[in-house]
């Protein structure tokens, strides 16, 4: 298990846990971040910018600091 922020670009993974306070948890779950869902990182913006994450049919951009709350298992 590792944080999403450390997942290599292009590598597939499955969400194993979301460790966030209530409002962030709500936001993430409304955008489709749920335990057991597969995802992958499409690209990272330069200068340590946000990650573009593909979750099923949705593309989401989020900062590494937010992504570190999402734990994943690479597959």
């Amino acid at each position: 298990m590792q944080p999403l922020s450390q997942l290599a670009t292009g590598q597939q993974a499955v969400i194993s846990a979301i460790e966030a306070e209530e409002s962030l948890f709500h936001r993430l779950s409304a955008l489709g971040f749920r335990v057991g869902k597969p995802l992958s990182i499409m690209r990272r913006a330069s200068f340590n910018g946000p990650l573009q994450v593909r979750l099923g049919t949705t593309d989401v951009i989020l900062r590494a600091s937010e992504a570190s709350h999402i734990k994943i298992n690479p597959i």
Binding site: R27, L31, D59, V60, L62, R63, E66
Partner: peptide
């Protein structure tokens, strides 16, 4: 503030 945004096609 967390920065999370949907990227539409």
């Amino acid at each position: 503030e967390p920065f999370i945004l949907e990227l539409p096609p």
